[in-house]
């Protein structure tokens, strides 16, 4: 009887294992298709680019200028946005205030609206008829088609990445540690600078890198507020539209390689 029970139990455990293995196999196949779908076009792009074309593209001043413009504007915008976004993220993580849900909703708006529509909205915001545009015109500046406009479009679509990541980072810092710091003589600002920010640093930096990467990749909003000077995503579109895929492909390959390198650095930083 005892042996029979053991046999039954063994059979049952083997049965569970078999089902579990079957599920793993099916799920792995389904997941594999998704991975293939994500990786195949990128691999295809790199494989199809001929070395001489890549070399020529590297030497093309229009390409290098667009890459520099894209990287510089995205970096500056990320740093400036961080000054405003990090305190907001801290408030959202720590404080209760009326309309907090509304504020959180506003932060997520750029994620849900079409970026070309965001570009149209920004165009109205900085056009000559607007307050900001007319003030700039008074100072002899035309904002439309300027690096300022590019930065504005990049910031608009990418700020949610920074705010949300930093907010999650601050929320994970135990309140007890901030309270302890206060009883040890630290002012509110000092608690933030010496306890909250260092402990949320990883999430804040991840958010900044994500914002930077998202900003530099932006096309829809940027192309509407500034076709010229050309950021690299706009240049890729321009080459494709004017000369065809063979001219767009090497620029796309270079830009994707840069983006992937940034993403790789982020992953290494997060795993450290």
């Amino acid at each position: 009887m005892q042996r029979y029970k053991i046999c039954l139990s063994l059979k049952s455990s083997m049965g569970h294992k078999l089902i579990s293995n079957n599920i793993s196999l099916v799920f792995s196949l389904l997941g594999g298709i998704i991975l293939l779908f994500l990786v195949a076009p990128l691999v295809g792009l790199f494989v199809s680019v001929k070395a001489p074309a890549l070399f020529e593209t590297f030497k093309d001043p229009a390409v290098s200028e667009s890459i520099i413009l894209t990287l510089v504007v995205s970096s500056v915008v990320t740093i400036i946005s961080a000054v405003f976004s990090i305190p907001l993220a801290y408030m959202l993580a720590r404080k209760k205030f009326p309309g907090k849900g509304l504020v959180e909703g506003i932060i997520d708006i750029p994620v849900v609206i079409p970026h070309s529509a965001a570009g149209i909205a920004l165009l109205g915001f900085i056009s000559r008829d607007s307050l900001i545009g007319s003030m700039a015109e008074g100072a002899g500046l035309n904002l439309i088609g300027s690096p300022f406009a590019i930065g504005l479009a990049m910031a608009f679509v990418s700020i949610p990445f920074l705010v949300n990541s930093a907010r999650d980072g601050f929320a994970a810092v135990p309140v007890r540690l901030e309270q302890a710091a206060r009883t040890l003589g630290a002012s509110g600002l000092r608690v933030f600078a010496t306890i909250s920010l260092p402990l949320a640093k990883r999430s804040v930096i991840s958010g900044m890198v994500l914002m930077f990467a998202r900003g530099m990749s932006e096309f829809g909003a940027v192309v509407i507020v500034a076709y010229h000077p050309m950021t690299t995503p706009v240049l890729i579109f321009d080459r494709f539209n004017s000369y065809g895929i063979d001219y767009a492909r090497p620029v796309a390959a270079i830009f994707i390689a840069i983006t992937l390198m940034i993403f790789l650095l982020l992953r290494i930083y997060q795993k450290r």
């Binding site: 540690l177 302890a180 206060r182 260092p198 402990l199």
Partner: peptide
């Protein structure tokens, strides 16, 4: 709290994990 001159030892000690022992005491 920072101006009260009242020290508090928390039940879970609330030591700052990103600071060394020296830095915790010096804080």
């Amino acid at each position: 709290p920072s101006k009260r001159s009242v020290g508090l030892l928390f039940q879970d000690y609330a030591l700052f994990p990103h600071l060394s022992v020296f830095e915790n005491i010096a804080y």
